[in-house]
């Protein structure tokens, strides 16, 4: 038996990577048989990159049911009935692929236009008991990662603010105005994902950190969004992922064309168990 529990990505032996793939192939079937849990496959050869990376298709898929949010006003959502999840880790980082059907991509936030978005939530403290699946409670914070289509469009330089609300020639703004806007926007960042901590509905607090990377793409009536982060960040408000250990997640999807925003969303009603593969590869597998 090898006792190495952790490989650095660069030094992952080729054989182990191949063994990992073989293990993945036979485990894929068992993950599909247990649809309520999400298996995070160990990929010593590195994580799939963007949402279009073909390697995602090699990973087992978990389909989770979404329901309208009916607990606190404003209630609503329900336009997206199910969300497909795939996940992998490489011993250092974890990546999730979220995919859902949405015939109309909504990338704009206007006075009365709403954008598509999706979020994952995890218990923020590495505790055995999962807090309430409704964004946690006073003693059990939930760490939330929210990707949104308008931030994605902005990050790609395709934001529609300037065309929808054009700057009329001759209209003059105080020079300070631009710096105020920059300040306000700074904490939203240029990445298409925001990180939060919540202690239950209505308590969402943005965090000025950039631990999660994300990218999303809409094609053929489907949004595909990848969110990626280090397994551990050392930040007490961040979720912790450890190989071989169980975790849990909740998910939410907002359908912009239905006016979804904040509580108007399609949500999971229970925690979805997440199991990370071990990085230990038995000698017999080599």
């Amino acid at each position: 038996m090898r006792t190495t529990s952790r490989w650095s990505r660069g030094r992952a032996p080729r054989t182990a990577a191949l063994a990992g793939l073989a293990a993945l192939a036979c485990l894929a079937g068992s993950a599909a048989a247990e649809p309520q849990g999400l298996r995070v496959v160990y990929r010593a050869d590195g994580l799939p990159a963007g949402p279009d990376d073909a390697r995602w298709q090699e990973l087992p898929q978990t389909q989770v049911e979404l329901s309208p949010q009916i607990i606190v006003p404003p209630k609503g959502g329900g336009g997206v009935a199910s969300l497909s999840l795939r996940a992998a880790h490489d011993g250092e980082r974890i990546a999730f692929l979220l995919a859902w059907r949405d015939p109309t991509p909504n990338r704009e936030v206007g006075v009365a236009s709403f954008r598509d978005a999706a979020a994952l939530g995890f218990p923020a403290l590495a505790s055995a008991t999962a807090p309430s699946p409704f964004m946690g409670d006073a003693d059990h914070p939930v760490n939330i990662w929210q990707w949104s289509a308008e931030l994605e469009a902005e990050a790609r330089g395709e934001g529609s603010f300037a065309t929808r609300y054009p700057h009329t020639p001759g209209v003059w703004y105080f020079p300070q105005d631009a710096s105020v806007t920059r300040q306000v926007r700074a904490w939203r960042g240029v990445a298409p994902v925001m990180e939060f901590v919540a202690h239950g509905y209505g308590t969402l607090r943005p965090r000025p950190v950039r631990n999660v990377l994300a990218s999303g793409r809409w094609a053929d009536g489907t949004w595909k969004v990848v969110m990626r982060r280090a397994l551990e960040t050392g930040d007490p408000e961040d979720a912790v992922f450890r190989p071989s250990e169980p975790q849990n997640l909740i998910a939410a999807v907002w359908e912009g064309s239905a006016g979804d925003v904040n509580g108007r969303k399609s949500v999971t009603l229970t925690w979805i168990p997440v199991q990370l593969d071990s990085t230990v590869v038995a000698d017999g597998d080599r």
Partner: peptide, 16 residues
């Protein structure tokens, strides 16, 4: 009382 606490109407871009 279900979806909303208040009977309201969201004005659109052109309404402003």
């Amino acid at each position: 009382g279900q979806a909303e606490r208040i009977a309201g109407v969201l004005p659109k871009d052109e309404d402003w």
